[in-house]
Amino acid sequence: MTTTLRAIRAALLVPLALLLAGAAPAAHATAGHGLPGNWLRLAVTRGDAHGVLLLCDPPQGHAHAADACRQLAAAGGDIGRIPRRAGAMCPMLYAPVTASAYGAWDGRRVDYRHAFSNSCVMGAETGAVFDLSG
């Protein structure tokens, strides 16, 4: 990575880290969190940790927000109840990722954390929810 790209990345990560750090206490207090409707703070951890704030009323903040919100609505906000993607074939490659989410869904607190053997398995089991790619 060039020095310029590192500088740009560092300049973008600092405000993001401050924003996320400031949002964390509010995310756990579902009553009075200040965000309307259903929302989840999502993260996939591998190497460089990053995350997004998925808002579902209306869907935004996520590359696949509409799909993720639709899948979450069908599962009642329970990520573990999202049906496994039919026909998903993942390599038997061990490259672990941990998916986590906390927030509020229909007034209930959501606190989800699960380790998957690789990102393909994670996508097959959680649909669009943790597909944070742009």
Rank of each mutant, 00 (worst) to 15 (best):
P83G: 03
P91W: 14
A86G: 04
R108L: 09
R113V: 06
C69V: 07
Y94M: 13
F116M: 11
L72N: 09
I79H: 08
G76M: 02
G87I: 04
R85H: 08
A73Y: 00
A115M: 04
C120Q: 01
G87Q: 11
R85L: 11
N118W: 00
A88P: 11
I79Q: 06
A104D: 12
C69G: 07
F116R: 12
S100C: 03
D78Q: 12
D78L: 03
A115V: 10
R85K: 14
A101M: 09
A88G: 12
A88H: 10
G77S: 01
W105I: 07
G77E: 01
L72H: 11
M92E: 15
L93E: 15
A66P: 10
R70I: 00
G87N: 15
D67F: 05
M92S: 15
G103M: 07
A65K: 13
S119G: 07
A115D: 08
R109I: 13
R81Q: 11
G103C: 06
R113C: 00
G76C: 01
N118R: 00
C120Y: 01
C120L: 00
R109W: 07
I79L: 11
C90G: 05
A101Q: 09
L93Y: 05
A75K: 04
I82M: 05
A115R: 13
I79R: 08
Q71M: 05
W105E: 05
R108D: 12
Y94R: 15
I79P: 01
M89A: 15
M89S: 14
G107D: 14
D111N: 15
W105Q: 06
V97F: 04
Y94E: 14
D106R: 14
Y112I: 01
P83E: 03
W105N: 07
G87D: 14
C120D: 02
A88R: 10
Y112W: 11
A104W: 02
A75H: 04
G76Q: 03
